[in-house]
Design a protein around this nucleic acid. Structure first.
Lengths: 147, 147
DNA sequence: TTACTACCTAAACTTAACTTTAGGTCAAGT
DNA sequence: ACTTGACCTAAAGTTAAGTTTAGGTAGTAA
């Protein structure tokens, strides 16, 4: 199975120029072309793009993804390096999830706060509720957001 | 209680120039100065910075945070707008967490993959295991990453 | 008095990750 | 024959979010 750049762009919701940019950066190993120079993406290339998207979500930089791809091209002698990279990224993403859960707690607190302000037609009342007088479930959000 | 810019920078692990940049952008309302022009951050300003950091983690842009802060300055008549903004951000962050959980599944799969490759001293064996022959717990990672 | 540290401003610079532009090829349809 | 649409390249441009630079003030410590 092989795909054109336009098909792949739609598949991943990336722009065509982004895919060309990844290719130019050397992120997509063994990307073949037809006789007139048009890129033909195979399933392996698709998996690479899925991986790139994954590593981008983990906030890895292109230059580091590039380095990883280079290790792949060096074969079995870099297995250990690559494993360590993924172990680091695992930590990374786990931390990021924890951070986002704190962020969500802050946002949940604010949602409650503005719900209350909307009921009261003013912010003044809810603003002055001391922390220990907050409803128990809301106090949990507040404390998580400030931890 | 009031704090210098250096103290606040340490408190949030931000650079001093970042805090000045936020101030210049108008993100910190009612930030006072002493007689020689030195910024004095009060508890309210500190809460604002905590909020900015939270909204940044939700991937909100400075210009949108600025808009929100502007709404705050307009008082009670913008309560509804502000509430809607937090409701959108809640969706946003929840999606982000779901995405990161998918990312984590991919990374967990890769960790297993390279663990196996390390045992085998080669990638060749693990690379050729068909999806339906993967250990059940690993198949879960694989499927989640490809969902 | 001089040195040090922490603060200040305005403006120029940086960086990553694309995106846009300008100009071109190629196959298919009318 | 010609137009359309999808592809191509190299190179310049964009954008956000800071960071750095250059030059200055103010309080303290030896």
């Amino acid at each position: 199975m092989s795909y054109t750049i336009g098909e792949v762009a739609k598949m991943f919701n990336l722009s065509i120029s982004t895919l060309r940019f990844y290719d130019k950066e050397g992120l997509i190993l063994n990307l073949e072309r037809d006789s007139s120079g048009i890129r033909k993406f195979n399933d392996n290339n698709i998996e690479t793009i899925r991986l790139i998207e994954c590593l981008k979500k983990a906030d890895m930089q292109i230059k580091d993804i590039k380095e990883f791809i280079h290790w792949v091209s060096l074969g079995d002698k870099t297995i250990s390096k690559r494993r360590e990279m993924f172990l680091r990224q695992k930590e990374n993403v786990e931390n990021k999830i924890r951070e986002l859960e704190k962020t969500l707690a802050m946002i949940n607190f604010k949602c409650w706060y503005y719900e209350k302000a909307l009921e009261d037609h003013t912010e003044d009342k809810v603003k002055n509720i001391p922390i220990d007088k907050l409803p128990e479930d809301i106090k949990i959000f507040y404390n998580k957001a400030h931890s």
